[in-house]
Design a protein around this nucleic acid. Structure first.
Lengths: 238, 238
DNA sequence: CGCTGAGTTGACTAGCGTCAAATAAGGTGG
DNA sequence: CCACCTTATTTGACGCTAGTCAACTCAGCG
């Protein structure tokens, strides 16, 4: 199948470079660079950053773009287990293994920074902070997984989709964009898999929320018209 | 219904002490003791080790007993997100927070060892191994969560219950007991919540698997009669 | 301009949830 | 030790949500 991505050439400073005070980033990359060689990789839509089964050497930090994580079973069943955007780690689930445990698919063009893991561990000894930051990043992943388990285990289709739209809005807001007007970057089928629903059900629910005037949706463009109503559907506090 | 099994008497878990070579344990506690003060806590059935919202200071290591983790929402919805037994960590999901993010309920009498987290971080600098071990333990948690998301997102009620029984059997086996004859330590309702089903559905499925002669179940006692059939139901390889 | 994959919608239905009731087990106080 | 109460488990009847199957539209693209 397809291969590792090519390292990108330019290492020039980027207008949107990392700032330590940026809360969305798990770790201080500039600091980390003093100890770890960071490789940059361009991502094309549809490309995978790593495959399940491929040997594990590195974590990745999404610098731009959007990626889905896919868990797959021996018998071919597959399940979208999450989405990752700018500032998120990839590969954390595979720490301690010889091979990556899940697959990744880039949903748009982007860029990922490769952080060789043995070097990361070394750096943990030099940077007292990094150690705690890494653990905290893993813990945060566990918590978001748990939150979605709660959502899927206790809410119906309509409520799940509402929760998902709010979460996507929040993600946009955390990157400085509007929480109420954004583009979905995944297919309906990916949303559906993630929410343990079907493609058709997600479609129907979106149409219903549209008809109820809670959102305006066309293809992948979403406007949140009544955030309060969406929130109250999902049991979230204002 | 037709005859169920009679509850058998001897199922007491003998408390064996920790051995570093025991793969089920995430970390080497004896080694850790040189750097961290480990407090022992007895657990009674129904007791909580920590509550959601309580301030976070420590991880816990389950030394004996069985614990359920419960995620709860503002509006009262709750979801069992996992079970932990001998050798498993508790509290890992709350690393990086000021307060524990979920609740814990002991399902039988047991013992938990408290590991103050700031001291753990300190110890990471003394023990090169611990650092990697801790990260690996968190990563393992992420992977098992993902595996259950796959199960819940792609399998029906019957298949989920089958997968759960196999997983419980495996847990027993990893502690040196039989994988084919064990006691469930949680209520039907807890299983149901974890599997995103209802109490009633779990009951009916267990009865059906019993009638199909794949298992023999009476109350909380389970005998696996046809492990191959259970596995093939869930798409797992032999 | 046809091909492909994504998205939408309808018709049908089955699997699972809901409600209700009965039984069994376990725990407590007298 | 027993009576009583609470909680867990089981089973049935019924209904609805969401899955399945299928058809169609639309957008992008070579």
């Amino acid at each position: 199948m397809n291969m590792r991505l090519e390292p990108s050439s330019s290492f020039a400073a980027d207008a949107r470079s990392y700032h330590p005070e940026d809360a969305t980033w798990a770790i201080d990359v500039n600091e980390l660079r003093k100890h770890v060689t960071v490789l940059r990789h361009k991502l094309a839509a549809g490309q995978s950053i790593y495959h399940a089964g491929q040997s594990f050497h590195s974590l990745f930090l999404v610098h731009a773009g959007f990626v889905k994580l896919v868990e797959l079973a021996d018998d071919g069943r597959e399940q979208v287990i999450g989405f990752r955007g700018r500032g998120d780690f990839l590969g954390t689930e595979s720490i301690g293994l010889d091979a990556y445990a899940c697959g990744t698919v880039s949903l748009e063009s982007g860029e990922a920074w490769e952080l060789p893991f043995p070097a990361m561990l070394q750096a943990c000894h030099q940077m007292p902070e990094l150690n705690a930051r890494l653990a905290a990043a893993l813990a945060r992943e566990i918590r978001t997984d748990h939150a979605w388990m709660l959502t899927i285990g206790t809410l119906n289709a309509e409520q799940r989709v509402a929760a998902f739209l709010l979460a996507e809005g929040k993600r946009c807001a955390s990157m400085g964009f509007s929480a109420k007007h954004f583009m979905l970057r995944m297919r309906r089928a990916d949303m559906a898999s993630f929410l343990a629903l079907t493609n058709e059900t997600v479609c129907r629910v979106l149409t219903k929320l549209h008809d109820m005037r809670l959102i305006a949706v066309a293809r992948r463009e979403v406007k949140v018209l009544d955030e309060g109503a969406l929130r109250s559907m999902t049991g979230q506090m204002a």
